[in-house]
Design a protein around this nucleic acid. Sequence first.
RNA 1: GGCCCAUUAGCUCAAUUGGAAGAGCAGGGGACUCUUAAUCCCUUGGUUGCAGGUUCGAGUCCUGCAUGGGUCACCA
Length: 526
Amino acid sequence: MPTELTPLEKVRLEKLEHLREMGIEPYPNRAERTHTAEEAKAAFLTSEQAGEETGPRVTVAGRLRSMRPMGKITFAHIEDATERIQLFLRANDIGKDRLKLFNKFFDLGDFIQATGVLFRTHSGEITVRVEDFKMLAKAITPLPPAKDEVVDGKVVRHAVLADPETRYRQRYADLAVNPEVREIFRTRAKIVRALRDFLDDHGFLEVETPILQPIYGGAAARPFITYHNQLKQKLYLRISFELYLKRLLVGMYEKVYEIGRDFRNEGISFKHNPEFTQLEFYWAYADYFKVMEFAEEMIAFVADRVLGKRTLTWQGHEIDLNPPWRRVELRQGLIDAVGIDIKDCPTAEELAAAMKEKGIEPKPNASRGKLIDQLVSDYLEPNFIQPTFLYNYPRDISPLAKAMPGDPTMVERFEGFIGGMELCNAFTELNDPLDQEARFLEMGRTYAADDEERHPIDEDYLRAMRYGMPPNGGFGMGIDRLTMIFTDKRSIREVILFPHLRERGNAKPPAEAGENPTVEEKSNEG
RNA sequence: GGCCCAUUAGCUCAAUUGGAAGAGCAGGGGACUCUUAAUCCCUUGGUUGCAGGUUCGAGUCCUGCAUGGGUCACCA
């Protein structure tokens, strides 16, 4: 059970035992903090401005981040969630033995508290003249040393935990030494808060729908599969909230949204994590153009709240989030970008031929919709650096969207892009139960040859729709990707606290959890 | 899953064409009463990701594996 300790850890463990022998508890139950570092400094400034002779007496607590012992005095910094504050320990004040105890048995990374009167050092730094100090929690494993130097008012980090694998696997250590990483997740929380406020203010009701679903749907992805023992029933982790949220429109709610986790058993990349956070909303009596305007207003609102402005820099690009965003009609976009009018190519064969004529290799065995998707991915999306809505999509890759009047091959759907990355997806929702059933059957035929991708038909969803579903517009957006845009990160792992990595030292998966499991193989009986 | 790159001390990184594995920080010992990358002296620490191979000799070249990063595929 005990793990192998490094020599550095053994040294600290010995120090911990020494403390115990001296009657000092290295993990006491209580701390007596009166001020955060930030509050302490503010209190000092207040008393200084009032002309008081001595500064306020405070007890601060935090992690020991630097120590500079100089014989009979020691300077140190502790850091809490607000900021760092300097401690000044002097043999004259606390006695030689206490100072020696501090120098010898307290280490970088330990949580401690210190009590004393605030003053300014000769160099002007607000500092605690320590009268008493206490160990709050001894650190056994040393944090990677992160020394900061202040050069011309700028903080220069000299050694830093930079290895991405260690940073993701031990996010706690990453957060502990890299304050800018802590900031990312504060920003993320602000984004989510702003989205909620915006939707709440517009009369939307926040709801929670099942994560464990008997039938998965609403997107095209392979699911994670699990099993309920008592019900003796397979369950799927949702790949989308869509079909449940739209059931609620049948139930007479007009505006609903959910922010939560989706799970997709697909490849992992710089913009894909197996579980990711999604916002979806559904809005009765709205269509996709109304949703489009609402969406760009929503993002602008988030920018106002989170950044205080509507422009930002992402990977060197100046992004302007001010509405209205650029709008590109898909058919016209492809005419302009590749010189193919998809209207002239009503079948997959004709479109593939047109692509070959332009020197583009069409994906083998792809449907017309997939070929259009290929063209969009390769020739349109990468250029959508500024916020752009691409609208009017092919029907056969959009089985839940309503067809365009006058063109049964196309649907009223748009996607939003920033930085060349798909951010959101929306449509005028299909509410015709007979059409919906036909689409489901069509999808079933399309994938009949490939069991893996075939989705089970959600009969209950069709029943709900037969009760009558108001016309509505729906919208889905990846919160992780939005956070990437707002924090100027290129990898989704930078905005997820604990991203999924392959398990260490367990390279061989259990036999029953092999690649591409079928439902039958994957269920965990018992 | 394919291809490319990486893996050296706790952390960040060196190591000429194949020729004795190093530095800074952290750690240990010592000095030092206003330091802040404190400074100064001394010092511990390595099966170079793992397993093979080529060679008189491998951190360096070859093969396989592992993990990560990138990219492609996949992701209506």
